[in-house]
């Protein structure tokens, strides 16, 4: 096994990890605010990829337009879902809200299947990002480097937004005690809409970014979503750092697993999660009894 192959796999793990990070960040901030798991998160990710496909094939054949407007569209769509559906559900036990998102997932996937068919759709790498870059010790596809950089910038942006801005402080306060924030005269429901839009926008961005390197099908988010659950269990739910580090760990474990023995790769992360639960049940950065 050459050093170059190992380096390549490490980078591939970083790619996978990047997608996990983007999805887990959204999953985690929505959970923090609302106390629910969004089972439709994988479906929103899938819709992001299809939004990019629709934009580049039917509206304007330019990847960059899709890259900018795909996530914005998904964010707006997520915010609209919050306003029209989820707002009615907050007084119910989390169980029902989760069931609702499960139904939403089934409906979204089937709508996409009806429109685009079950075979998936083709998506090309943008021309400006074709080819490979010489990293000194190996060549690596330009597009994949781009994906890693975008994820890094986004994670940094989300972290800065939540920790350094006033709005971010309000979101964190709402996560801790939304009633209190409401009582202090802040419109908490508008903040909730924003958080939902942000989370779905990140999922949409992940969908747009993977479209050129993964099969775009109506079921592409199904397995990915569960992997993200492993990420947040390991990283700690509601923690930005947990989502980022957890996502990268899980991505690397899968990449290393593929290197050693491909059939075991997916099973490996669940075994790792099991071991993790025995040693540190609340996750790397998780708070004790958060939304328990």
């Amino acid at each position: 096994m050459s050093a170059q192959f190992i380096g390549m796999q490490l980078f591939n793990g970083l790619i996978l990890g990047s997608v996990y990070v983007l999805l887990s960040l959204g999953l985690s901030i929505i959970f923090g605010m609302l106390g629910i798991i969004n089972f439709a998160h994988g479906a929103f990710y899938m819709l992001g990829a299809y939004a990019a496909y629709t934009i580049t094939s039917y509206i304007f054949p330019n990847f960059w337009i899709a890259f900018i407007f795909g996530p914005i569209f998904m964010g707006a769509f997520g915010a609209a879902c919050e306003v029209f559906f989820f707002r009615r559900l907050y007084k119910l036990p989390p169980l029902y809200v989760m069931l609702f998102t499960f139904g939403l997932m089934m409906a979204f996937q089937d709508i996409i299947r009806m429109i685009f068919g079950s075979m998936g759709v083709p998506f090309n790498t943008p021309e400006s990002l074709m080819g490979a870059v010489n990293l000194g010790f190996m060549y690596y596809p330009k597009y994949r480097l781009f994906l890693i950089i975008v994820t890094a910038l986004c994670s940094l942006g989300v972290w800065l937004f939540l920790s350094k801005t006033r709005l971010g402080a309000l979101i964190r306060a709402g996560t801790d005690n939304s009633q209190m924030v409401d009582a202090l005269g802040i419109n908490i429901s508008r903040i909730t809409t924003l958080v939902f839009g942000l989370g779905i926008g990140l999922a949409g961005l992940a969908g747009v970014l993977v479209a050129p390197i993964q099969n775009v099908t109506h079921l592409m988010g199904m397995d990915f979503l569960i992997d993200c659950f492993v990420v947040v269990v390991i990283g700690g739910m509601g923690s930005i750092a947990g989502s980022i580090i957890g996502g990268l760990i899980v991505g690397e474990i899968i990449a290393m697993g593929i290197m050693v023995w491909p059939p075991i790769a997916n099973t490996l992360i669940y075994l790792f999660m099991a071991a993790f639960l025995l040693v540190r049940p609340r996750g790397l950065f998780g708070r004790e009894a958060f939304h328990d």
Binding site: G35, P94, V233, T267, P281
Partner: peptide, 29 residues
């Protein structure tokens, strides 16, 4: 044994993840 260490929504996610482990095992074996 492993899942009851977490309650609430974590329990949900952990049980789901373990089920997925069995799914992948059956898929690949």
């Amino acid at each position: 044994y492993l899942s009851i260490r977490r309650s609430g929504i974590y329990f949900t996610m952990v049980t789901l993840a373990f089920a997925q482990m069995f799914y992948f095992t059956a898929f690949k074996w």
